[in-house]
Each structure stands twice: as C-alpha cells, then as structure tokens.
Design a protein around this nucleic acid. Structure first.
Ligand code: FES
Ligand code: FES
Lengths: 141, 141
DNA sequence: AGATACTTGACTAATTTAGTCAGGTTTATA
DNA sequence: TATAAACCTGACTAAATTAGTCAAGTATCT
C-alpha cells in the first residue's frame, strides 16, 4: 500500500502555506517553485481544498491562497478527505452484507482489514498541520 | 492509499490454510474454491510464500501446502514481505540524503510520512495468523 | 491596459495491478 | 506403469489508476 502523490502534495503544499501568517496570500507559483510540484497539478489540488473550505483564495495580482482555519484545526483527515485520498483496505462494499467473494458472509480477513483501516485513520485524525510546522521549526534549530 | 489484492489474497489464503492441522496438505484448488481466488493467481502467490519458508509444498496427488511454522509465529509482516506488498509513504529514497524534490534536504513532510509508515508497520508486526483464526472462531460462536 | 494569478475541464502518457495462459514437473494410487 | 491431481514457472495482457499536461478562460491589482 502506498500514499499517492496527490495526498502527499496536498499536505506538502499546505505545510508550506502554514509557515506564513494567515494574512498575506501565498501564490501557487511560489509553492510550486519551493516544493517542486507542477503548477498545473497544484491548481487541481487547491481547487478541491477550496471547495472544502480548507483554504481561501484571493484573486488578482498579489493574490494566492490563505488557510481558512487555524493550523491546529486542520487535521490530515480533513486534507485527505478534500482531495479524495482515501484509505481503502477492504475489498467489499462496507455497508453491504455480502463478502468480497460474492458470498453472503464476510470473508475471513474482513475484520482484520477493518481494524487496519481504523488504525491508519487514527493517525490521520490525530495529526494536524500545526504538528507539521512545529516539527520543522524544531529540526531547524 | 489502498491494500492490493495480492496482499489481501495472501493473507486470506493463509488464514484458510491455518484453519486446518499442519499435517494434511491443503490444495490450492480447495482454497481457490472456498475463497473465490483465481487458481493461477494463487499459484503465483504461493510460489513466493514458499520461497520465504512460510509454507511447505507437497507435490503429487493429494498434495498441497502446509504451514511451515506455527500460526502464532507468522506475522502479517512476514506475509507481506514475502509477496512484496510493501508500505511506501515517502517519495524519496530513504537512505539517500536528497529530498523528494531533488533538493539536498528532506522535504517538509518527510518526517510525517516516516512516522506514518512506522505506525502502519507496527500493526503488521503485532498481528499474527493465529489472531486471525481466533477471531474467526469467536465470531462463529 | 497589462500582468499576475486563480479557475475549470478535458485530455493523455506512464505505471501498476490483477490477473490469464501455456507449458512444464512431480508423485500418489489404481 | 499409466494417469490424474497438483505443484511450478515465466511470459503475456487488459484494465484501472495515477500523475500529470494543456488550453482557454476570469478576476483583480497597479
Ligand atoms: S474484505 Fe470485506 S468481505 Fe472480504
Ligand atoms: S518524502 Fe522524503 S524528502 Fe519528501
């Protein structure tokens, strides 16, 4: 199982944003250059982040994006949810009563994968953007 | 991020194997039928499991596969390792000093993904085949 | 007016996954 | 000893997903 670029970039870009105050917007171009992410790709990502109210956009010259909440309140869960980076461990439809093999009972491993999914999601629910920024400040000392 | 079929099937098939004693070999054909996994695909998977000494093969008529260790000693880590289902969260080469953006320092999120990887691997190191079998027996009651 | 930067949707190349297929070899047992 | 069950291997392929690119806008500051 691996993390996709979309999720990785979303968090990376927001971490970049979060390093600045929430007043002066940061342009995607700057983020693109600093983080080495394609500008066009960033635009796709930020479009989604905006729709989920994680960032606010400022159009025109000197425009860019600003965090819409405090860094502490933005959890990885929220970010991943916004860009459709989802954790999927089971094969079957979760709410269906059928198993992944088409049978009427859940397969031998269903419970295990469900536990795994929760385990991973817990991590995402605990980590906030603030944690990320702090970690980077500390490492710089 | 999602789990691939190869990893899922490997664990599913071994869980099936583990329900029986370690004396009479279980044929892939039986597993294929019970678990709804393509026989040809199972063969690929078991070839890898055998190379890593997780199972033993018995050729010929009435042949099949047998667990090579006690279910308690087979952790998910071992299984995933055998079938090359690996957890990959960072983009960069781990041992390299370069970051994923080609720069000379690790990116803002590198540490975070590293933590995530450990978090997931911890789960795999704790869970054994025995846990799986027990869980299924309990549910049946 | 012009430059900067957001906005959107469609398109595509590359990669990965999830198998299939064909041709073996080994061994129990009738 | 013939035969069938079952392991064994490598090559091939279709489908899905990912990771972008590209083109054509719109808004706003200076
Ligand atoms: S994963 Fe849900 S039934 Fe198999
Ligand atoms: S993931 Fe390692 S440097 Fe970005």
């Amino acid at each position: 199982m691996k993390l996709t670029s979309k999720g990785r970039y979303a968090v990376m870009a927001l971490a970049d944003l979060a390093r600045f105050d929430n007043i002066n917007p940061v342009s995607l171009r700057d983020i693109s250059l600093r983080q080495g992410i394609s500008l066009d790709y960033l635009e796709q990502i930020f479009s989604k982040l905006r729709k989920k109210d994680i960032v606010q956009s400022v159009r025109g010259t000197q425009g860019g994006y600003v965090l819409n909440k405090k860094a502490k309140e933005i959890k990885l869960t929220n970010i991943f949810d916004a860009v459709d980076e989802k954790v999927k461990t089971v094969q079957c439809k979760k709410d269906s009563k059928k198993g992944c093999n088409g049978k009427s009972t859940k397969c031998l491993t269903h419970n295990l994968w469900d536990e795994l999914e929760n385990h991973i999601n817990n991590f995402f629910e605990e980590k906030s953007l603030e944690d990320l920024v702090k970690d980077n400040v500390e490492r710089r000392i």
